[in-house]
Design a protein around this nucleic acid. Structure first.
Length: 476
RNA sequence: CGGGGAAUGGCGCAGUCUGGUAGCGCGCACGGUUUGGGACCGUGAGGUCCCGGGUUCAAAUCCCGGUUCCCCGACCA
């Protein structure tokens, strides 16, 4: 089997190697598009289902909207069309006929949502509208990379309408927190919540928030966003309601999204030189059983034990796989490590005799992570182990993140810090400042973290007084 | 979209300069020996050499056009 490029040697190549060798995805015959293979899709489904549960728990419902949007819809919101025009895919011919009006393949659905909400919302009694879409969208990206930036990508987009700005803002923050907790609790992924700079704001929003994650190469990845759209789309699409006081008012809307890029983040945050390391809650296979035998006699005692334990674990609700392929154990160990399976159970003649199994954990390489445990109570032991693995993956990622964020005050310190990690720096929220960071240091303002003490600072770029600091670093 | 690399069996590559029978390693199939950290031997299958034109007796190789991938920029979830 082909080995993968070491992470330290070439992080980008390592990432591509892992995706190929772990059977996550393949390149499609269309530029910038990928085929997600069953193993990768299974991971996506697990993440999607957990996130969907969180949406439902916060009162949202799912719906489906068309992938085609009339071009004129996008033009109704000036900044929105300006932001998205360069990356639109447009359908001009249908059924062999030139279309009266070109149809845009949705890059995001705010406009068609606005059109429909305008018809659905008449009274304050109709509010709030809390709808989420699981779909794919298309953006004609110049430079693509599997999961991180593809021309078509799968994601969810939530769209809500509210009576007041306070309520809309609370929604924006709630959903950002939902993303954050999905990262922390489901994916062992620490992220930093914050407000995007004016320059980085979503096209058409009055405020954009994000969670930012640090990858294994210390580059930043915007893992999810939540937007306060103010009344921009409400006014563009006439989303109005009659309030209790019998006056007509515009709604306040929000949108928020998380894409399969989150999977890319998972790979780049937790993976190592052996391949993927998947958090147990989202792993397609949580535990794999590898039978060990030398001859038919051993096989005939080992296999029934494997089968029995497989059934026990399956009945206990663990996503378990019995690997009965005709391969050597060593091959299987490496294969499942590449695929990031959190726990491996080896069962050989000695184990059958002792009513034990060898239990190896993916997050601890070699002998250190391997122990012999009784077959009795294995499901319970695994559940505890999964919690341990989750906690250890989270801690490693968080320690790494913390160790590579440097608090700085001056331009020189900022420059030095961002050579190798992120800076937490006093920065003016001004597009001209963002431009200087980009031009001179090839870094971007990731966000102004919400969780920071208020203070009086001097901007590291302009020398002007500022009240907040920003995370600054190289980004994907 | 600019700059740089690349495309030859599923994967990784040699062959291209200097045109002349398409090769190697891994993987795959079958048989045997193996099996607690990527086994070994034997036999075998698998190719429009990215696509389209052109030059030539003859093109993986030379020329023209296009497509895709990777890296670095600008743009972006």
């Amino acid at each position: 089997m082909a080995k993968i490029t070491p992470r330290s040697q070439d992080f980008s190549q390592w990432y591509l190697d892992v995706i190929r060798e772990a059977d996550m995805a393949d390149y499609a015959p269309v530029r910038g598009c990928i085929v997600v293979k069953p193993y990768g899709w299974s991971l996506y489904e697990n993440m999607r289902d957990l996130l969907d549960r969180r949406f439902k728990d916060t009162g949202h419902v799912n719906a489906a909207f068309p992938m085609f949007i009339p071009m004129s819809f996008l033009q109704k919101e000036a900044r929105h069309v300006e932001g998205f025009s360069p990356e639109l895919a447009v359908v001009t011919i249908g059924g062999g006929e030139t279309l009266e009006e070109p149809l845009v393949v949705r890059p995001t659905s705010e406009t068609i949502i606005g059109h429909m909400y305008a018809q659905w919302v008449k009274s304050y009694r109709d509010l709030p509208v809390l709808i989420n879409l699981w779909n794919s969208v298309v953006r004609w990206e110049k430079r693509t990379k599997p999961f991180l930036r593809t021309m078509e990508f799968y994601w969810q987009e939530g769209h809500t309408a509210h009576a007041t700005h306070e309520e809309a803002w609370a929604e924006v923050m709630q959903m950002l927190d939902v993303y954050h907790r999905h990262g922390v609790e489901d994916c062992a992924m620490p992220t930093l919540k914050g407000r995007k700079s004016v320059n980085e704001r979503f096209a058409g929003a009055i405020n954009t928030t994000s969670i930012e994650a640090m990858m294994g190469d210390k580059r930043a990845l915007q893992a999810a966003t939540s937007h306060d759209l103010g009344q921009n789309f409400a006014k563009a699409f006439e989303i109005k309601y009659l309030d209790r006081d019998n006056t007509e008012k515009y709604c306040w809307t929000t949108s928020w999204g998380l894409s399969w890029r989150f999977m890319g983040a998972l790979i780049m945050m937790h993976g190592d030189d052996q391949g993927l390391r998947l958090p147990p809650k989202v792993a397609p296979i949580q535990a794999v059983i590898v039978p060990i035998f030398r001859n038919d006699a051993e096989k005939s005692s080992v296999m029934p034990a494997c089968e029995r334990i497989f059934q026990t674990l399956k009945a206990a609700g663990i996503r378990v796989k019995l690997d009965d392929r005709d391969e050597t154990p060593g091959f299987k160990f490496n294969d499942w490590e590449m695929r990031g399976v959190p726990a491996r159970i080896e069962i050989g003649p000695k184990d059958v005799a002792n009513n034990s199994v060898a239990l190896a954990r993916r997050d601890m390489p070699g002998k250190a992570g391997k122990s012999f445990v009784p077959q009795e109570g294995l499901a319970e032991r695994l559940r505890t182990l999964f919690d341990d693995i989750h906690a250890s993956l989270y801690k490693q990622a968080e320690d790494f993140q913390r160790a590579n964020i440097h608090e700085v005050r001056t331009w020189d310190e900022l420059k030095e810090a961002t050579q190798d990690g992120w800076a937490l720096a006093p920065i003016t929220d001004d597009p001209a400042v963002d431009a200087r960071l980009k031009d001179e240091l090839q870094v971007t303002n990731r966000n102004f973290p919400f969780d920071q003490p208020e203070g009086e600072w001097v901007c590291a770029v302009t020398g002007r007084p500022v009240r907040e600091r920003a995370l600054v670093g190289k980004a994907y």
